[in-house]
Amino acid sequence: MKDVREALMVGRNTEGRLVRRPVSPFMLGSAYKFQTSSLTSIMHRITGCALGVGTLLLTYWLVSAASGDGAYSIAEAILGSWFGILILFGFTVALFYHFCNGIRHLAWDAGKGFELPDMHRTGGLVVAATVILTLAFWALAFFIW
């Protein structure tokens, strides 16, 4: 043990034996089973990272529009292709999930909704709202405009 901080990563198991504490992301599966709480939590991170990649798409769209007609028509062709639509669909799912679950996180920050039944209920609500908002978005995109 070279670093004094490593001492904090050592704990005792139920038999009293010294063990190295599991370190994220290796908690799930080995030391921890999937539940509504952990699943909605990791989904928040995954969708957040996906949206980070999605900002590249937003950047590309804005830059191509600013560049000129040629660049914009290429961007239109890429984003309008079936592959582009698939990526955009994933983007909207991630956006609506992160949006809804973000509200849940802000409520927790305000000290509300910590009780387990509330937490499970809001977790289900977030998933339902994500499905509804995504379907509403694509229904509007395809049929109204």
């Binding site: 043990m1 001492a7 904090l8 990563m9 034996r17 010294l18």
Partner: peptide, 18 residues
């Protein structure tokens, strides 16, 4: 491998100074 603690200090003592 089983880790061993060489530094016998309290948790607070370990955190102090970091």
């Amino acid at each position: 491998t089983d880790p061993t603690i060489h530094i016998m200090r309290s948790n607070l003592g370990r955190a102090r100074g970091l």
